[in-house]
Amino acid sequence: MRVEQYTAWKALITGGESVTAWQKFYVYFYQAFIEKNRWQQYINGVGTTLYVTALALVLGIILGIIVAVVRTAHDQQRPGHHNPILGVLNAIFRIYVTVIRGTPMMVQLLIMGFVIFSSSKNFAMVGALTLGINSGAYQAEIIRGGLMSVDQGQMEASRSLGLNYIDTMRFVIIPQAIKAILPALGNEFIVLLKDTSLISVIGGKELLYAARAIVSRTYEAMFPYLITAAIYLILVMIFTYLLGIFERRLRTSDRR
């Protein structure tokens, strides 16, 4: 694409002359993507998007596993052997899951960004923290479902060998649960990736933020948003592909 061509055709449009669809496309695409190296803004935006997704993902998985294991352990206690610490943690985690699942993501972001961390300028970090805490609540319930779906006989067999609860969870129950819940977890990860677009409301400079900045410069919405949609689609497709590979690797123990 050449800048001379762009300036010439742009002059036609601003002059109110009739132009072909191709000329229009050329001008607006050039404006949205190439002029003033705007493609760099998308790339920077994608960088932040991936960074925030990765941080939120790790935080969400850690929170999810801790909450799920504690809640399952609490429910699986032997009758008459109630551990008070587990009881307190279980109550806290239940409130956490209820509050996070019961309020909109957007509201959580606004509260975190403008109330709790109102003095912070690291918007991407605040966004990642909020998304991670949010995702953790959903992942906790997915993982808990997975842990409960593993046959009770597995726990009994492992405990009957003298393995303790933690080792049993780590080597026997959680690996089997993860295989069972991987499709649901993949779903949650995809939602998380796309939800990072919400952090633009608190000033996180991710992909959608970049697109909106370009729209406000050029007064032209179509191409920046179409490009943004295309980039998200590609990211999700790559993600789905990677998950598929992981799932196939976990299935090695199913071959007969």
């Binding site: 006989g153 597995q154 067999a157 009957s160 003298g162 393995l163 303790n164 690996p175 089997q176 123990s253």
Partner: peptide, 21 residues
């Protein structure tokens, strides 16, 4: 109880081998 269970092997009706290992 974990120490005691180490000294008592158990075999189940449905085997309960660990399918992931």
């Amino acid at each position: 109880i974990n120490k005691m269970r180490q000294k008592m092997g158990m075999v189940f009706q449905h085997f309960n081998l660990f399918p992931n290992l």
